Amino acid sequence: MEKLKIALVDLQCEMVAQRNIVNPDNISWLQYDILYQLNKLKEILPSDLSNILGTSRTKLSKALKELKTLEYIQQYPNKQDGRELYTSISKKGKSLLNNISEKHNSLYETTLQSLTREEQNEFEKIAIKLSTALKEKRVNNYE
């Protein structure tokens, strides 16, 4: 296995482990990603959210239903088409994300301690470039 491939797999495993540590309510990864996107986007239609997350409408619908039951999101009808529901994050959902975010500081602190300032800057550029490319590939393959 190439060293780069091993490094990517190891980093992915560690990031998953970190994500499990900071998830106090044991929500699914998809549910976390939904809340994260809603926090950034404010409100969105499920069809658009499905495209952003690269997941099926069925999986998304189930996750949204569970998040609504937990009162982490709120939904209301689209005035132009009542069959569509705009979805937004609730105060309780924002609070959950804030708690998780505070726990993410440990990951950030470890990064600051492990990398020089120059390495941090380079890692930031590379991480943004790679995550953008992965997202574009996923979205383009999903359409």
Rank of each mutant, 00 (worst) to 15 (best):
P24V: 08
D25K: 15
D25Q: 14
D25A: 11
D25M: 09
D25N: 12
D25R: 14
D25F: 00
D25L: 10
N26I: 03
N26T: 11
N26L: 09
N26H: 14
I27Q: 02
I27M: 05
I27W: 00
I27N: 05
I27C: 01
I27P: 00
I27F: 04
S28W: 09
S28C: 05
W29E: 08
W29P: 07
L30D: 05
L30N: 07
L30G: 07
L30M: 10
Q31G: 12
Q31V: 08
Q31C: 11
Y32G: 03
Y32Q: 12
Y32P: 05
Y32I: 06
D33W: 00
D33E: 10
D33N: 13
D33Y: 07
D33P: 04
D33L: 09
D33C: 10
D33A: 13
D33Q: 12
I34F: 00
I34P: 08
L35H: 08
L35C: 08
L35K: 14
L35E: 01
Y36Q: 11
Y36K: 14
Y36E: 06
Y36T: 10
L38K: 08
L38A: 06
L38R: 09
L38H: 06
L38Y: 02
L38I: 12
L38W: 01
N39M: 07
N39R: 14
N39V: 02
N39D: 10
N39S: 12
K40R: 15
K40D: 07
K40H: 13
K40E: 09
L41E: 11
L41G: 02
L41R: 15
L41Q: 13
L41V: 12
L41Y: 02
K42Y: 04
K42F: 06
E43Y: 13
E43L: 11
E43A: 13
E43P: 00
E43M: 11
E43S: 15
I44N: 04
I44A: 12
I44C: 13
I44V: 15
L45F: 01
P46D: 01
P46W: 06
P46Q: 06
P46E: 03
S47Y: 01
S47V: 14
S47Q: 10
S47T: 15
D48Y: 11
D48P: 00
D48I: 12
D48A: 11
L49W: 00
L49G: 13
S50R: 14
S50C: 11
S50P: 01
N51V: 07
N51W: 01
I52S: 01
L53F: 06
L53G: 03
L53K: 03
G54S: 10
G54V: 11
G54A: 09
G54E: 00
G54Y: 03
T55P: 05
T55H: 05
T55Y: 01
T55E: 05
T55R: 15
T55A: 00
S56L: 04
S56K: 05
R57Q: 09
R57L: 05
T58K: 09
T58H: 00
T58C: 03
T58M: 03
T58W: 04
K59Y: 02
K59C: 01
K59I: 03
K59R: 12
